[in-house]
Design a protein around this nucleic acid. Structure first.
Length: 675
RNA sequence: GCCGAAGUAGCUCAGCGGUAGAGCAACGGUUUCGUAAACCGUGGGUCGCGGGUUCAAUCCCCGCCUUCGGCUCCA
């Protein structure tokens, strides 16, 4: 319950709404684009090929997805990339035959009959039934038409739509194989998911692969290593725990400076909180034990014991179950304390109840709530906007770690705004405006706010049981979004436990989507912490809390910026803003150059030098390759004229200009964050 | 966590059952050069870690770790 935003989540998100064929409505099917249709047909072509090679293959679902298609198959033979060529050759035979895709409407009884004979997603009858198809059939509601699609001997249960003939699939390629659980449920058998992509023709496919290559060159892991921004050291530091090298550190400082200035102007105050907190903090917030799996296990301070830290993961644990129940109920801090004391007392021996347990914080809000609680608050104090670049730790599953995009230590551009209901709209609107301001600075033209709301059926289960508050806050948020003309979509039944939220999706310069930040309304947790302010009428009231983090986390945001700019950062953000290159290493020349370096450094410009004996061509090339923003080339002619020659990364030689002007230009560009 | 793939010098990569190689980078020297690579030389690797097979393993087998591609999770 936090608010803070699941920054670590779903970067590079694929749009997989299309994933499960059975989930699609007829309306969605009708809207399927030409290329989606073609890819879906290609999935059938691939299944045909696989059925020819391995007749006992059992197919599940084979939908088009963004950029391609897949088909899930259960097969004793493990398909590896080495098999792709063989499968593709068979697929080519199918497309060459140019079989028509024939739609056959059947009754449920007929469909079941085919499935029992193993005839679905197959070339002929088989000894074993088409068991996944049988299961899918059962999921099709009465009244919905049931159809097969047939190409050649291959018949598949399928609602379509398809292209006219197999020959319409002009170009395709199998890309990778992964595993997936049937219907995405880990209780179901694991299937082999074979991915491919398909296009109308070869030219389009080649363009796609060229674009992939380009995207690969922008990969933040690659550029980050090239530019010396960050490093991972799994053996010593640990997986998912980035080390920020000086150049990456410089970028972090710039982002924090931007946030400090922006937030200061918007009336925020900055606070500092520790990285750890006692167990009681997270019992009160409700994070434990529900969120425990995403937290590092606690450290226990125990006397006479040398047992290791324990995590609260055991489902049979009575202690855990009682705690879990606490989460869904409203208790005053005092009640929580009493209950916890009771529980801990009852299981003292087994649970090291006497131990002092400390957790690394996975979010900042509980600490900020305690800051709110640290002093008596009056309505005159509100809104109170507490900001902190807090460092949090989340135990992301090992398979989830991905470069800077999904890490275990994260620095959040966090703030919590405590306000009254009356102040809410204005505060929320101001937060949105801050987002837009940042988007402008970073040149983000495409963005979308995804407004997640509750659903009545989830009240008291998935969501805090406060229907009136839900409605009130959701209406407020919706009004603000509508009135401000912000681009948003509403997603029902996706809210956080304690309030509606807004996920901010942005698209980088090359069109890749990133979920960069989350904005959340919280009307539940302040209550759990007993936060109150004294209102005008001398009664105590609980404030609303807005969690917001427009710049997300440094990790995710810098990863995004690397891709967005392909490492060619604007001057203000560039890790190495200026490099001064001398033509030759004549002592007087170097002295002159050093004077300029010192002047820039005195103005907080990040300058490096290349005063060696190398040829100027070599120096320029190295500087260009390191993506230094501005190169100041200094030769005897420049020294004589008290000038410098300016060269800008990617833009070439800008010519000589007076030294004072060059310095002033650089300082102005940095200050204005203009380029 | 699950399925699959990969791991050789700081980086990009070659190699192979018989004592490990290139380019770039680094370091030393020479070059004094006006905007994308001057020249010569030197150092550098327990071939991810552990075990097994073998006269001999970077190479074959097993286990582990990490990374990558997916899946799952996401209050």
């Amino acid at each position: 319950m936090t608010g803070e935003a699941d920054f670590g989540r779903d970067c590079y998100r694929m749009q997989d709404e299309l994933q499960e064929a059975s989930r699609k409505t007829p309306g969605q099917r009708a809207r399927m684009s030409e290329v989606e249709r073609l890819r879906h047909s290609c999935a059938h072509v691939m299944a045909t090929a696989i059925a020819r090679l391995w007749p006992d293959a059992q197919f599940a679902a084979g939908p088009p997805v963004e950029n391609g298609f897949y088909y899930d198959v259960d097969l004793a033979h493990r398909i590896s990339p080495a098999d792709f060529e063989k499968i593709e050759a068979e697929m080519r035979a199918v497309t060459k035959a140019n079989q028509p895709f024939e739609r056959i409407v059947v009754t449920r009884a007929e469909a079941l009959e085919y499935a029992r004979r193993g005839r679905l997603a197959a070339l002929s009858d088989r000894p074993a039934p088409s068991r996944f198809k049988l299961d899918i059939l059962e999921g099709i509601p009465d009244g919905e038409p049931i159809s097969f699609f047939r190409n050649g001997e291959f018949i598949d249960l399928c609602a379509g739509p398809h292209v006219m003939r197999t020959g319409n699939v002009g170009a395709f390629k199998l890309t990778h194989v992964a595993s997936a659980y049937y219907k995405n449920d880990e209780k179901n058998p694991q299937l082999q998911r074979i991915y491919g992509t398909a296009f109308k023709n070869k030219t389009e496919m080649e363009a796609w692969f060229t674009m992939l290559e380009e995207a690969k060159k922008r990969d933040h892991r690659k550029i980050g290593a090239e530019m010396g921004l960050f490093a991972f050291d799994p053996d010593y530091t640990g997986p998912g725990l980035p080390l920020w090298l000086p150049k990456g550190g410089a970028m972090i400082e710039e982002l924090e400076k931007l946030a400090r200035e922006t937030e200061f102007a918007a009336g925020y105050v900055r606070v500092r909180t520790p990285h750890i907190a006692r167990e009681k903090m997270y019992l009160t917030s409700g994070h434990l034990p529900y969120y425990a799996e995403s937290m590092f296990p606690p450290m226990e301070l125990i006397e006479h014991e040398d047992q290791g830290a324990r995590a609260l993961h055991d489902p049979d644990d009575k202690f855990d179950r009682v705690l879990k129940s606490l989460q869904y109920e409203q208790h005053s801090p005092k009640e929580v304390e009493e209950l916890v004391g009771k529980i801990l007392g009852a299981s003292a021996e087994a649970k090291h109840a006497d131990a002092d347990r400390y957790y690394l914080k996975a979010m900042n809000c509980p600490h900020h709530h305690r800051i709110f609680a640290a002093e008596p608050r009056s309505y005159r104090d509100l809104p109170l906007r507490l900001a902190e670049h807090g460092c949090c730790y989340r135990y992301e599953q090992s398979g989830e770690l991905f470069g800077l995009m999904r890490v275990r230590s994260l620095n959040m551009n966090d703030a919590h705004i405590y306000c009254t209901t009356e102040q809410f709209a204005a505060e929320f609107n101001a937060v949105n405006e801050m987002y837009l301001k940042y988007f402008k600075i970073f040149g983000l033209e495409k963005y979308q706010m995804r407004f997640s709301t509750s659903a009545p059926e989830g009240m008291g289960k998935k969501y805090v049981d406060e229907p009136a508050l839900w409605k009130q806050t959701e209406d407020m948020v919706r009004d603000v979004l509508k009135n401000s003309g912000i681009n948003f979509v509403e997603a029902a039944n996706e809210a956080a436990f304690y309030g509606p939220k807004i996920d901010v999706q942005v698209w980088s310069a090359i069109g890749r989507e990133f979920s960069i930040a989350t904005n959340q309304v919280d009307f539940a947790v302040p209550k759990r912490f007993g936060l109150v302010y004294r209102d005008r009428d001398n009664t105590e009231k609980t404030p609303l809390c807005i969690h917001r983090a427009p710049l997300g986390t440094h990790e995710r945001f810098i990863g995004f910026l690397i891709e967005h700019y392909a490492g060619n950062f604007p001057l203000w953000l560039a890790p190495e803003q200026v490099r001064v290159l001398t033509i030759g290493d004549d002592a007087a020349l170097v002295d002159y150059a050093r004077g300029i370096v010192n002047e820039l450094r005195a103005n907080m410009v990040r300058v490096e030098t290349d005063f060696g004996a190398d040829k100027i061509n070599g120096k320029v090339q190295r500087a260009e390759q390191s993506r230094v923003h501005t190169m100041l080339v200094i030769g005897p002619r420049d020294m004589a004229a008290n000038a410098v020659s300016v060269r800008v990364h990617g833009k070439g030689n800008q010519g000589a200009r007076p030294r004072t002007q060059a310095v002033a230009d650089i300082l102005a560009a940095i200050k204005g964050r203009t380029n």
